[in-house]
């Protein structure tokens, strides 16, 4: 909307919007700030916004005491692995639905979506049982599988909406030019859909990174990702604010940065294309 707006009004809007924005962001800002304080300063009354002794000690302590790197590594492997696996399964499926639609395509898409609605707690015991049976409990591969499955509908949906925007004639041209199915997907479709695939990957890494039901229930020590690492601060260590803040900052920083890149795709992915 390129509408003329009076300067006083714009100033007022700016003030209100920034106040609200900063208020909403405050808990994150406060967490990051506190992570650089000493424990005593972290609980000081009145709260210290400046003039505290800047220290990195909390980060060192957190790493040393709970081996942060191992949890981080688990998070990276699990979020990355489940997304990658999901993309590999979803690209061919989305190709089929976008370019060779049949009468059942819509039903299949909706059905896939419906599996996403299955309440996790309803199948907690069976999944744990199967995990025990197959020795997947507290393994990264087990979590990669589960997170891939719970996010697969979203991946398929997002790719489907992106693929739909690619004109079918270009794929037909590739076919006329002698490309087989594999070449058509590899040399023509995939490069054209790179932006869409990238946003899909981004959003799914975020979702997998933050998933906190299966990661809490299916891991113990060796495969636990950052969600579980933070949960271990629930008590009584959570009262060490500076440490909690340092641990929290480390857990959310990577994904905050990724998240800011993906805000536009977020809408599309999370509403299954219903809002663009």
């Amino acid at each position: 909307m390129a509408r003329a707006v009076s300067t006083p009004r714009k100033i007022a809007t700016t003030a209100v919007a920034w106040t609200i924005g900063l208020l909403i962001f405050f808990p994150i800002y406060w967490t990051i700030l506190t992570s650089f304080k000493t424990e005593a300063q972290a609980i000081a009354n009145p709260p210290l916004f400046w003039g505290f002794d800047f220290t990195l000690e909390n980060y060192a302590v957190v790493q040393e005491r709970s081996n942060y790197m191992r949890f981080l590594w688990n998070s990276v492997i699990i979020a990355g692995g489940s997304t990658l696996l999901g993309i590999l399964v979803a690209v061919p499926a989305a190709w089929s639905m976008a370019f060779v639609p049949s009468r059942r395509t819509k039903d299949i898409l909706l059905w896939m979506l419906s599996t996403k609605m299955l309440p996790a707690v309803g199948v907690l015991y069976p999944i744990s049982l199967l995990f025990v049976q197959f020795g997947l409990l507290d393994t990264r591969i087990g979590l990669i599988l589960v997170l891939m499955l719970i996010n697969l509908p979203i991946i398929v949906w997002m790719l489907y909406t992106y693929f739909k925007e690619i004109p079918g004639e270009i794929l037909e041209a590739a076919r006329m030019d002698g490309a087989g199915l594999r070449q058509e997907i590899l040399y023509v479709l995939t490069p054209m859909a790179i932006p869409g695939i990238a946003s899909t990957v981004l959003l799914n890494v975020i979702l997998a990174w933050n998933e906190a039901f299966w990661t809490l229930n299916l891991t113990a020590a060796s495969a636990a990702p950052l969600t579980a690492f933070i949960a271990s601060y629930s008590s009584p260590e959570g009262l060490f604010y500076a440490k909690l803040s340092a641990a929290s900052t480390m857990a959310i920083a990577p994904i905050l940065i990724l998240g800011w890149f993906s805000q536009k795709q977020l809408v599309r992915g999370l509403t299954f294309g219903a809002v663009k």
């Binding site: 609200i20 909403i24 975020i206 990174w209 933050n210 857990a251 905050l256 998240g259």
Partner: peptide
Amino acid sequence: VIAPFFVMPTV
């Protein structure tokens, strides 16, 4: 405004 969405639930 969007930032809180990216914070993991446990945090």
